[in-house]
Design a protein around this nucleic acid. Structure first.
Length: 702
RNA sequence: GCGCUCCUAGCUCAGUUGGUUAGAGCGUACGCUUCACACGCGUAAGGUCACAGGUUCGAAUCCUGUGGAGCGCACCA
């Protein structure tokens, strides 16, 4: 028996050595597995971690789950491939970098765009290496040779070609429409990049000529010269569509026009409202229907424009009260309701209030693409684990609006669009003299949405033919809208096939009390602190056991500790078995009692295999844990002690054979869950018949 | 407003299609330096499965309602 078994299991002195051996073996590359060409491909595309910071607990969870799925399939005889990546994470990284610039007393505004790009590039490269090291530390058996960065030239080219194809197919269009504008970050955002937050905001009712109108945003009312009501509202039948009247307003007398539109709810307030088309989606739609004037009131920094008269240059939040005061002084304030609840959109990164603005941008026409995606789900080509996410997915797909893909940031893939005299075209190179290039970049999710296609080498590479469509997309439930629908759409649009057949959604990793981890609460747990303290296998088990898909997990340190004890228990079982059995004498026939133990194990192995096939990973983990500790160790091993110490030689030898077989098979069942300790023991097993446990055969035949 | 999820032992959670005395880990109490393991072993306490109805031979599990928690979506000014 090797000397190392005389001491407790020591993850710190084991894990990196084992990982290096695995990586050097080449078996992370599915094409290099024994008899690779005879194996059925099984592919997972890793959600590429952002190359802008450290791994957090959520990363540890998805790495564990995806590695487990990959190792399970690899041992089951599949051509198991797990493709890693690194995400430039456009807007998110730029936000992180802008914070760093702020600390240094600098600002991205006024910086040379190329200089800024180069700085962020260097920043992400440093973080990318850091991230890769941390992913390795979790035991990820992914194929690093296939790793791609979302700004690699080939990726950029594929993404740009997609845009050009969509332009030709009429699926993207350039339009001046209402966008979600973040005044702090100076860029537009898609709908899923904003958060709707309910707030208590005073609701004011003002006298507006013969009418009374309600608003929560008096600061936008300078340009309001249309008063809108429902065409069937009996109270206002005497006013005809198109009637004009004069009234006294914030900065003096104006002329207003009556508009009748069904968008107005007669039951709300007075049933009359004025509109600000430039700064409201609803108002914009009304104005478009009736061909009304639109005027910008608030600039891109969130300050009032000259139309505001004496309020010009003021921040909207400062101006609001002053405007109300002025209207009140003029006798135009009818009432105010301080308890009014209103929903406002905020930037999901900086929490700044989104200012709707009209801006000329690129939009993806979603309706035909969404229809394709829904049909694909209807045909059962994509299923969700847990399946209630299908409903959520469907609802979103059916209600999604056109997708703004233009971003006013440098950190991203340039949009290959060119303009000349108001005409737009799409091409990678300049179409010729006089054309100027769109300075905007793509929404990150436009490129991330194509990720399964990109990493498999769409459209031509062998990998694409072998590994696309992939099998499982394992990701956080927070990406159910941002990422999953886009991948399905692009897969169907470009390759005619959904990019995966199963979407496994994991929940959030919360703190020990189930509260969301956040820097401000100070309850953030660094997964690498836990692995260095208790071992990676222990953390992996703690993240898996009792963690049902789609449900959030409370991560407690004592749970991790418990599984460190389990790793050590396994280690001691191995010590005992190796110490008490003579492999040379294990050909003795088994007794019927021994056969019964093998049958029990076999039933368990089948059960666990089914659980893993059905993604009941949490159950499988608990079952193998329970078996090893409370059956193998507590019962079989204990009852073996007298036999092994006895004089019945045949009994002793057959019992030794049994223990070796059960340990060998237990190691195999456990390996996807706890790869390091099982591999380390396997390397000392006399039953070892593969170079690594990683590529040994699963105890249940396919 | 629309929708989703959850409420099981002190804590954090399992309980797969309804089926024998409802489970795990940690924690608690008591006892063990037993020759694989004190990162251990043994024993024990602890639950009217949120509540109220219903379906069923049988419900933690299915249905309805009530209460509580969390989350998502939302162009009512």
């Amino acid at each position: 028996m090797p000397e190392k078994f005389l001491k407790p299991y020591d993850p710190a002195n084991t894990e990196s050595r084992i990982y290096e051996a695995w990586e050097d073996s080449g078996y992370f590359d599915a094409d290099k597995l024994p008899d690779a060409e005879k194996r059925t491909p099984f592919t997972i595309v890793m959600p590429p971690p952002n190359a802008n910071g450290n791994l957090h607990a959520g990363h540890a969870l998805f790495i564990t789950l995806e590695d487990l799925m990959t190792r399970f399939k690899r041992m089951r005889g599949y051509r198991a491939l797990w493709i890693p990546g690194a995400d430039h994470a456009g807007f998110e990284t730029q936000v992180v970098y802008e914070k760093q610039l702020e600390k240094e007393g600098r600002s991205r505004f006024g910086m040379d765009p190329d200089q800024l790009y180069d700085e962020i590039y260097a920043f992400t490269q440093a973080n990318k290496h850091n991230m890769e090291r941390q992913v390795r530390a979790m035991g990820a058996s992914c194929d690093w040779n296939r790793e791609q960065f979302t700004l690699d030239p080939s990726v950029v080219e594929t993404v740009q070609r997609t845009f050009i194809k969509m332009f030709k197919d009429g699926l993207v269009y350039r339009g001046a429409r209402t966008v979600n504008w973040c005044p702090k970050h100076q860029t537009s955002l898609s709908d899923v990049e904003t958060e709707s937050v309910e707030e208590t905001t005073p609701f004011y009712t003002f006298k507006y000529g013969p009418f009374e109108i309600g608003t929560v945003r008096p600061e936008t009312k300078f340009g309001d010269k249309y008063v809108v009501m429902h065409p069937d509202d009996a109270r206002y039948v005497s006013y005809k569509h198109g009637d004009t009247f004069d009234l006294e307003w914030i900065n003096g007398p104006i002329t207003a026009t009556v508009i009748k539109d069904e968008a107005v709810d007669p039951a709300f307030g007075t049933g009359v409202m004025t509109i600000t088309p430039w700064h409201s989606q609803v108002d914009f739609e009304i104005a478009k229907r009736h061909n009304l004037d639109m005027e910008q009131i608030i600039d891109w920094r969130g300050r009032l424009l000259p139309i505001a008269g004496e309020f010009e240059g003021m921040k909207i939040t400062d101006a609001r009260e002053k405007i109300v005061e002025k209207l009140k002084a003029k006798g135009l304030l009818v009432s105010s309701d301080a308890q009014y609840k209103n929903v406002v959109k905020r930037c999901y990164k900086c929490n700044t209030m989104i200012e709707p603005q009209i801006k000329d941008q690129w939009f993806v026409k979603m309706a035909p693409l969404a229809e394709m995606a829904i049909e694909s789900v209807n045909r059962g080509e994509v299923r969700f684990v847990p399946n209630n996410y299908e409903k959520i997915f469907r609802y979103w797909m059916e209600n999604t609006l056109d997708w703004n893909i233009s971003r006013q940031i440098v950190w991203g893939i340039p949009i290959p669009a060119w303009q000349k005299n108001g005409e737009w075209t799409a091409s990678i190179e300049s179409p010729g003299e006089g054309w100027t290039r769109d300075v905007d970049t793509f929404d990150t999710w436009f490129s991330s949405g194509q990720w399964p296609l990109i990493v498999t080498g769409f459209p031509e590479r062998d990998d694409f033919k072998t590994y696309y469509p992939t099998d499982v997309m394992e990701t956080g439930h927070d990406l159910i809208f941002k990422w999953v629908p886009r991948m399905i759409i692009f897969g169907l649009y470009l390759a005619n096939k959904a990019p995966f057949h199963t979407v496994y959604m994991h929940g959030l990793v919360n703190d020990a009390h189930g509260k969301k981890m956040s820097k401000s609460k100070g309850n953030v747990v660094n997964p690498l602190d836990l692995t260095s303290k208790y071992g990676t296998d222990a953390l992996r088990m703690a993240l898996i056991v009792g963690n049902t898909p789609g449900t959030d997990l409370a991560l407690r340190e004592d749970k991790v500790k418990g599984y460190k004890h389990f790793a050590n228990k396994l280690w001691n079982i191995a010590r005992f078995v190796l110490d008490h059995t003579d492999y040379a004498k294990t050909t003795t026939p088994l007794t019927s009692a021994d056969e019964a133990h093998l049958a029990t194990f076999d039933a368990l192995a089948h059960d666990i295999t089914t659980d893993l096939d059905e993604y009941r990973i949490y159950l499988a983990a608990e079952k193998i844990y329970h078996y090893v500790w409370h059956e193998l160790a507590d019962n079989i091993l204990e009852e073996s002690k007298p036999l092994l110490a006895g004089t019945d030689e045949a009994g002793r030898e057959s019992r030794g054979a049994l223990l070796l077989m059960l340990l060998d098979r237990s190691l195999k069942l456990l390996h996807p869950f706890m790869p390091f300790v099982t591999e380390e023991i396997y390397q000392s097993m006399p039953t070892k018949n593969h170079e690594y446990l990683m590529i040994a055969d699963w105890p249940v035949a396919k």
